Simulated assay, not measured.
Amino acid sequence: MTITQLQYVLAVAEHQNFTKAALKVFVTQPTLSMQIQKLEDELGVRIFDRSKKPIQLTETGRKIVNQARNIVNESDRIQDIVDQQKGFIGGTFRIGIIPTVMPTLLPMFLNNFIKKYPKVKLNIEELNTDTIIERLKEGHLDAAIAATPLEMENIKEQVLYYEPFVAYIPQSHRLSKLEKLKIEDLDIDDILLLEDGHCFKDGILNLCKTSKKSNDDHFQLESGSFETLVKLANEGLGMTLLPYLHTLDLNENEKKNLKMFQEPVPAREVSLIYNKSELKIHIIEALKNTISGVVKGAIAFQNVKIISPLSQNKSKKK
């Protein structure tokens, strides 16, 4: 049994196709098939059921793949140890970022990070939280930036910043005359929300569950972007809530419609998350330090109440 054979097994398990797997690991399809057959003969079991299309793992094969992933990860750790010892920060690093963070945070830190760590090649994807968790568990992402706490087994969270919720309320709205809002002022029936699948929407629903006016049964309108929500609010179709960093890009007239909450200000916790067995900790620390450094100047709020993105609201004070 070799590490290379286990890498081939993982590639086939991922792509459920020998030809695609061979392309992934840069060998010919006959070479890959021969090595997997050799491993199966040595073990005396079938890892893959080749009679099914696409190819499926056998029951024993699923257990072998889980163990193979651990073994390959641990073998990679040797190079990671050497890199850290030499102080080398480089190589490919795959990171996922949720849609409600990507457009504001990425421009803030990316250029600084590239200049400071030119040998790191960042592969960045915009993904929702569920997809991020799945890819972290499967080893297809090295880390991600998401709203937390997620309370996931084997997923570690390093807090980057706390981002307050800010209300966007047009002049015609019933709450426009208030200087600062209380959570009790919110009425879910006139809050414009993001579509399902966005954790920021889940945070708003959790926030409104503390209000007597909360009603989960129906909403007026949902959209895929904050920009659209602002436009809908400007048309008199309701109000919306925005993450603080998104408010910095509004024009001067739109900024007049912003309302802060009374302290403790409701906020979301944004963290760098990764598998506890992740190898590239030196790059994770470099990312964390870079992001924390640039965000610290943009967000100075201290007295905030963290609103969880989980379906059951588990808030904590900071």
Results as ranks from 00 to 15, higher is better:
T148L: 04
P149C: 08
P149A: 07
P149F: 05
P149V: 06
M152T: 15
M152N: 15
M152S: 15
N154A: 12
N154Y: 09
N154C: 07
I155M: 06
K156T: 14
E157Q: 14
E157I: 11
Q158T: 13
Q158C: 10
Q158M: 09
V159I: 12
Y161E: 02
Y162M: 06
E163G: 09
P164G: 03
P164A: 01
F165M: 08
I169W: 04
Q171S: 13
H173C: 04
L175Y: 05
S176M: 03
K177L: 05
K177E: 03
K177F: 07
L178C: 06
E179Y: 11
K180N: 09
K180E: 03
K180Q: 10
K180R: 14
L181A: 04
K182P: 02
I183Y: 02
E184T: 14
E184V: 12
E184H: 15
D185E: 04
D185P: 08
D185H: 14
L186K: 15
D187K: 13
I188A: 10
I188W: 13
I188S: 11
D189T: 15
D189W: 06
D190A: 05
I191Y: 03
I191S: 03
L193A: 05
L194V: 07
L194K: 08
E195Y: 07
D196H: 14
D196Y: 13
D196I: 08
G197M: 00
G197N: 01
G197E: 00
H198K: 12
C199D: 11
C199I: 14
C199G: 10
F200M: 01
K201I: 00
D202G: 10
G203K: 12
I204K: 09
I204F: 01
I204M: 02
L205C: 06
L205K: 11
N206C: 02
N206T: 04
N206Q: 02
L207Y: 04
K209R: 12
T210P: 04
K213L: 05
K213W: 00
S214V: 12
S214R: 15
N215T: 05
D216Y: 12
D216V: 13
D216Q: 15
D217P: 08
D217T: 15
D217L: 10
D217E: 11
H218S: 14
F219C: 10
L221Y: 14
L221F: 11
E222G: 11
S223H: 09
S223R: 15
G224F: 06
S225W: 01
T228W: 06
V230K: 09
V230Q: 02
K231E: 02
K231A: 08
L232C: 05
L232I: 06
A233Q: 03
N234F: 00
E235F: 13
E235Y: 09
G236L: 00
G236P: 07
L237D: 00
G238A: 04
G238E: 00
M239Q: 07
